[in-house]
Design a protein around this nucleic acid. Structure first.
Lengths: 208, 208
DNA sequence: CTACTAACGGAACCAGAGACCCGTTAATGA
DNA sequence: TCATTAACGGGTCTCTGGTTCCGTTAGTAG
């Protein structure tokens, strides 16, 4: 009677870790195949070859499980490519996102993750953290562009990176339009053009 | 045995219409309050003061009901404002979207609608139609800008309008960042800047 | 290696979403 | 207005997520 924590915190080794891994992978599969709704923990337990009691005890709700999955995904990062120009870097980023979202597995998975986040604050927080990490990884290319003089001082690097992704997610979730390389290239180009023009400079009010 | 259609198609008058109206409003409320998951048809029936059998018979699934709601929403259109400049028009549009998405009722509703669309093809189609209509309503301001010579010939008006909304939805659904007037103004400015530079010209390949 | 107990897992249990039946109400056309 | 029957709605049944109980397995400290 001296633990006080969640299950899995006192003996996180061997079996517990193995179970977590299996369940998260199963959750990923289930989300990919059935989407966020039409997802039940018993099914995930079956896929993971794990007692459903365990899943209910450790995570309790679908939302909590998805949040845990997002944290897990956030930990594995993909390195960015460097091309030497802002347009090159951001186009590489846009293509990476475009390829991810049109991937027959990843696309549905991300849709499901975003859907899950709309309904639960903890899941939303996990999603925001995930994207914050990804944005952080790519922000340096904007800062380098500032140093090179490609874009004005005071440009909000994070906002520029987000501006590249935004149209791609808009296509995926909202307009349903085709999401191809052209769209990706255009997104990068638009962000660079706007950034060069100083649209993403933060403290423009204090300048004049 | 000569109808062959869905219930509500042969006698769409009086009661049937009243029921549909009540159920759609109840669905809107339920979606706003509980989000897409945690939504059951019995609850909606109770809110609408309608037998739950009716809801199950007419719509069957939550997805179908949401799709119908989207069609209903698509029918009522909001007129756009005209300011005389592309930046002015698109800023007005951005502010309209921003106000809608941050509204304590509309914001959660739209989140729920988008979440619902991720899991069902028919709902997704209804969502796409809804946004297609809205985009169509605002596209003329871009075409006027083309005529005025503000932006180059061949600019894809729809894509420009979408480019204004995209960052706002990205903030709402994905990054979770604050969605204020500054963000809206910046979105419009970025779209205009990119459009002026010819980023949204469609057939750039055939030019040179 | 052994003791301790955290964590797992099978099985029985419970509640509520969704399906069905059939009588009632009211839209529609003559 | 009246006859026809589309559409509604209360009540009941079913089936499946989700919870609880308790015995079993296996991390961890010594």
């Amino acid at each position: 009677m001296a633990d006080g924590g969640e299950p899995g915190t006192v003996r996180p080794g061997g079996r517990t870790a193995r179970v977590r891994e299996a369940v998260l992978r199963a959750a990923e599969d289930a989300l990919t195949e059935q989407g966020f709704s039409g997802l039940d923990l018993a099914d995930i337990a079956r896929r993971a070859d794990v007692g459903k009691t365990t899943v209910y005890r450790r995570w309790g709700t679908v939302a909590a499980l998805v949040a845990d999955l997002l944290q897990d995904m956030a930990e594995q990062s993909a390195p960015r490519t460097e091309t030497g120009s802002l347009l090159g870097d951001l186009t590489a980023n846009a293509l990476l996102v475009q390829r991810t979202l049109t991937d027959p597995r990843q696309g549905p998975l991300f849709k499901a993750l975003i859907a899950a986040a709309t309904g639960d604050a903890r899941t939303a927080a996990a999603l925001h953290r995930f994207y914050d990490i990804r944005v952080r990884e790519w922000a340096p290319c904007v800062r380098q562009a500032v140093e090179r003089g490609e874009v004005p001082q005071g440009t909000d690097a994070h906002e520029v990176v987000r501006a590249v992704s935004a149209p791609l997610y808009y296509h995926l979730l909202i307009s349903g339009d085709r999401l191809d390389e052209t769209t990706a290239a255009r997104a990068a180009e638009a962000a660079v053009t706007a950034a060069r023009a100083g649209v993403y400079v933060t403290d423009r009010g204090t300048k004049a």
